[in-house]
Structures are given as C-alpha cells and as structure tokens.
Design a protein around this nucleic acid. Structure first.
Lengths: 202, 202
DNA sequence: ACACTTTTCTACGAAGTGTCGATTAATCAA
DNA sequence: TTGATTAATCGACACTTCGTAGAAAAGTGT
C-alpha cells in the first residue's frame, strides 16, 4: 500500500514483495492464517518459494513487516485530517482514519475485521493507546474518578473493537456516521481530545 | 478448570486431557502459539503423541474446546454473582466476572491477556455482545443518538479489551476497583440499565 | 478373573521448512 | 551496448511435523 523510500529500490524486489503481499491478503480472504504456508503464498504469487526467504524470514516476519507499514499509513491518515479542520465537526481525526480504512477495506477487513491475525490488532492498538495517552484521556474522567490508564485501555479497546466489528459487518455505516457515533460515545466519556481548549500538545 | 458431567468418564481420559491442557497453558506461557506443536504438547504432558489425536483433531480444535469450556465458566461467573446483590454496589455482575478471572489468573493471562490466541477473545466477546445486547444497551444511548449495535460493539470491545490489558499488566487493580471503574465508565456512557439521569446531552 | 477401553509403541508416507550452490534473468551505470 | 551487479529461479538436501495404522501393553470397572 505504501512504497515511499528515498533510495531507489530495484523494481524487481518491489514487484516480488507486492506479489507476495497481495498473495497473502488473497489467501487470508479464503483461508485462516494458520493454514497458510510459504508454499501456498509463493505459488499464489507466482514466485519461487526460495525467493520468499530472500525477503522474509517466515510468515510471521512478513505479517509483522506488513503491520509496520500499516502503522505508517494509519498515522498518516490520523495526522492528514487533523490540519484540515475546516469540516466544522469536532470528530475530524477519526473521520480521516475511518475514511482511510474504508478506502482500503479489502486489506483492513482481512487484517482487522477478522480477529484471527492478532499482530495488526496489536499494532493498531499501540497507535491508539499512544494517541489517547498523550491526548486528553484524563479530562472529565479523573473528575469522575476514572484512572488514566484504565481510561486509555477502555478507549483504545473500544475504538479498535468497534472498527473491527464495523469491518466485520461490511461497513454498514458511512465513515461520517461512525465518526459521529464515536464523538457521541466519547463525549459523554470525556475522552475527546478537543475538550482541552488550550492546545499544549502537538 | 471445569469437570462436572453426570456420565462417569474414564479417569484415564480425564487425566490425559488435564495433562494436555495444562501442558498447553504451560507452553503458552513461554512460547507463542504458532511455535507450539503437537509434539511439544505431548512431550510436556508426558503423553504419547498418538494419544493427542484420540482427543483432539489438532491444536486449533483443542483451543476451541478449551474456549467453549471457558465460556461455560464465564457464564456461571456472570450469573453466580447476580443473585447475591447484597454487596450494595450496582456493579456486582462485573465483580463476579472479574473475581473469577482473578482467581484463575494463570489461565486467563495467557489466553486473554496475551492477544495472540484469538479464539478466546472471540468467544468471550460473543458472551459480552449477548449480555449487552439483550441487556440495556439502548437506554440512554438511543436518546443520545447512538445506534444500538454500535453501542454493543463499543461496550463489549471496551470490556474485553480493558480486561485483557488489566491481565496483561498483571492486574494492578483489585477486581473491586476495576468493577467500580467500569461502572463509572459505563454510567457516563449511559450503558448501564439502572441509570436514568437528566438528559443534558442532546 | 474377566471383558472392555485407553494408552503406548513402532512405523509409514506426505507435506512443510530452511538452506545450499549453481544457473538464469533483469537492472543500472559507464 | 556492454559489462558488472543484483535478484530470481532451479534442483536438491536434511530435518521436522503431521496424521494414520496395526498390534501390544496397561488401566478400569464389574
């Protein structure tokens, strides 16, 4: 999905890795991850099996690298929309995220909507924990007697879990609608970042 | 953990299955699930490898059966405490659950606290979705404009995710404290059944 | 003591893994 | 275009795991 590096990479490795990744996503749509072998990935990618090992140590390593790439994309999607605050609504951050996910639904439905490939959940959760953590998790909550880390666990789990279910059910709501729902759910919780009038964080 | 059946089962199969389950939990504490083989489980359980196949089709099948047993335990823990409402607090349901989890922390830390064995998460999530769904998910929320299924996704994900993080961090809070936190978090959300408060939010 | 069930033992073919060395093919720079 | 460099392919290897088979040994319950 992302391939922006300064150093020019041999187009052959780009092609090979792209083929391998698409083959893996393809296989994940029809089979569970523990039934997938290097043999099948290579076969589906029309790539020699040995070539796989020139790029990844094993399937787990491949998934981890793909999860890292996802984190980059997710973080770009999160910051991309922060600056265009013109939309008037307060839930632009999540809107940018949800739109990005909706645009790449094929990919995210497999790795997030299915609960069977935990690495992607883990990494996405890390991103959310970070965002919520150095955001404004404790505004109204500490007032209500809620511990900061508990609120962070709660909020990030709710976020990723709801998105996962949304994907799992083939996105029955638009990104706009779901972002609004999140805004409502988080407002009553006081988890929203914009509740802080003074912007002391980047 | 649970072994109550009317039909008397041959003590040898009880012993074998117990050994196998403990071996698996044991291995999960030191290794990731995809590195575990039938060989190693049998070896750790001091059971012949062939015997494994007399009880389970494969490791996935074994995990699924263990997850089913967990569901039974969880549902008992959820209903067990409902009736003894004497504790005065309103969050007894979750308290019973959290106490049960804390009592069997060794098991739950591996299967829920680690995010690498998704089946248990899935099954536990199903339980929560069911409970929240036919519970009181839509009371204040629909008033606030939150869709019922979104609220269910949100609530159950938050619940299981928070519990997972709690386990992952070696339970830094008592079940009582965490139950109270949940009560606070869900009250401001209006997810609780008993709560009917003034509608200050549109 | 007895029949019955479970576990063990040995063994098998099939499939997957990770790594070699040698060969072929594609890329890039001069 | 040529030549050097790098990537991909091919065949092969030892090794592990898997799932199943038949026969023997051990445990269970009456």
């Amino acid at each position: 999905m992302t391939q922006s590096d300064k150093t020019k990479i041999d187009p052959r490795v780009l092609r090979t890795r792209s083929l391998l990744k698409h083959a893996l996503i393809d296989l994940l749509q029809e089979t569970e991850v523990d039934k997938i072998t290097v043999n099948r990935i290579a076969e589906r990618a029309t790539i020699n099996r040995v070539t796989f090992y020139l790029h990844y140590r094993d399937i787990q390593d491949m998934l981890e690298k793909m999860a890292e790439e996802m984190v980059v994309d997710i973080e770009r999607a999160l910051t991309r929309k922060v600056q265009e605050k013109k939309k008037g609504s307060e839930d632009v951050i999540l809107l940018g995220l949800l739109e990005h996910i909706a645009e790449n639904a094929d990919f995210y439905k497999v790795v997030i909507g299915s609960r069977r490939v935990p690495i992607f959940h883990e990494r996405l959760r890390d991103v959310f924990v970070r965002k919520i953590g150095d955001g404004a998790a404790q505004n109204n909550l500490s007032r209500h007697g809620v511990q900061k880390d508990v609120a962070t666990w709660f909020g990030s789990s709710a976020l990723i879990g709801t998105i996962a279910s949304w994907l799992h059910h083939d996105m029955p709501y638009s990104p706009q609608f779901l972002a609004r729902q999140f805004a409502l759910l988080f407002r009553v919780q006081g988890l929203r970042a914009e509740d802080q009038e003074e912007g002391e964080y980047p």
